[in-house]
């Protein structure tokens, strides 16, 4: 399994134009592997920029993004210089550059290869991903990613079928046109298309936006299952604090292009952190629990899910009866 981390990353849109806008500023972040990590922040806090950067689609204007210890956006030139240093050459970059054409060629080819390989190691599900569907049948659409990986037709279909099963698509849908499906089914096909590549890191931007409660639950359950069975890291952006509290192991709080805090669900939703000042709400159940505690009812345990608060209240009531 591979780790992802950011070192002092900044990003400026439209540098040098009147529209210049800083989207990320000095972001330091290390994402623990094998966990489901939620990213929260109001619109414009830099979440989407961060996601694109993690997926290799947007080079930072400053800083480094490390995947598996290697700089994701290292330029071929810098890579060649590094190689030369490893081979014992020394001198100013200018002097070295006079000799480096051989290294440059090698480094360039290698970078391309790495870039392509990384696409499959880090899977991205964008907002409203059903827009990406294009093929004649659901099955061949899901196979698009695996085939781009260079897998055989047979292997690609095998993976597509298991991904389809994971997101709960009925087998008879596989031969249908993706454009004939319902909204919720299209969403699942799109997500299966990314899961079929079996990425080590799965990045999702609002995967359940616009779905009804049942559809939302199906999607999140599929994501959690993928995380458990493959041990992949999942990075999840969502506006639904209730869902994040239920499914995430870790939460990253972003505000105005910086990471304000990284921590467990408890740490982020606890009363000490005033989420409202970042334009965010807590899960309703946490709000209720906090109000009860304020009123003098000592509740203990998980106060971030309905089940947790129910248990805490029952425990409290039982404690009272036993007195």
């Amino acid at each position: 399994m591979k780790t992802l981390s950011l070192e002092n990353v900044s990003y400026v849109y439209g540098k040098g134009t009147p529209f210049e806008k800083e989207a990320l500023h000095g972001v330091k972040l290390s994402l623990p592997q094998g966990k489901i990590i939620g990213v929260i922040g109001h619109t414009g806090s830099g979440k989407s920029t961060l996601l694109e950067m993690l997926c290799g689609l947007l080079p930072p204007t400053e800083g480094r993004v490390l995947f598996d210890g290697a700089d994701m956006y290292l330029s071929p030139k810098d890579a060649a210089l590094e190689d030369m240093k490893k081979d014992g050459y020394s001198g100013s970059p200018f002097i070295l550059s006079l000799f480096y054409h051989k290294y440059w060629k090698k480094a360039y080819a290698l970078r391309l290869e790495e870039k392509q390989a990384r696409r499959f190691q880090i899977g991205l599900v964008m907002q409203y991903p059903e827009y990406q569907l294009f093929d004649e049948t659901v099955l061949s659409d899901i196979c698009y990613g695996p085939k781009n990986m260079g897998l055989s037709e047979e292997e690609a279909q095998k993976r597509a079928k298991s991904a389809a099963a994971l997101v709960g698509l009925r087998p008879e849908l596989l031969q249908k046109s993706p454009f004939d499906l319902s909204g919720g089914e299209k969403r699942r096909v799109a997500i299966a298309g990314v899961l079929a590549m079996e990425p080590d890191v799965l990045v999702l931007d609002e995967p359940a936006a616009g779905l009804d409660p049942q559809g939302r639950k199906n999607i999140f359950d599929a994501i959690a299952t993928y995380n458990q069975t493959t041990g992949a890291t999942v990075i999840l952006v969502s506006h639904s604090m209730e869902d994040l509290a239920k499914y995430c192991h870790q939460v990253v709080l972003m505000h105005d292009g910086t990471v304000v805090k990284t921590g467990s669900v408890e740490e982020i939703f606890s009363s000490s952190l005033n989420l409202q000042s970042y334009g965010l709400d807590k899960p309703q159940i946490t709000y209720i629990a906090e109000q009860l505690i304020k009123a003098g009812i000592p509740l203990l345990g998980d106060l971030f899910t309905v089940e947790g608060v129910e248990k805490a209240l029952l425990d409290y009531i039982k404690g009272g009866e036993n007195k």
Binding site: P129, Q132, F134, N148, M197
Partner: peptide, 30 residues
């Protein structure tokens, strides 16, 4: 859409004319 297909391993910049035209289908159809 281009970003989404790139993330699924689409390659718009290599190969001959026909290969490139074919690579654009997953963008044009959606």
């Amino acid at each position: 859409i281009m970003k989404a297909q790139k993330a699924r391993g689409a390659d718009f910049s290599s190969g001959g004319l026909i290969k490139r035209a074919k690579a654009l289908l997953p963008v044009l159809i959606p």
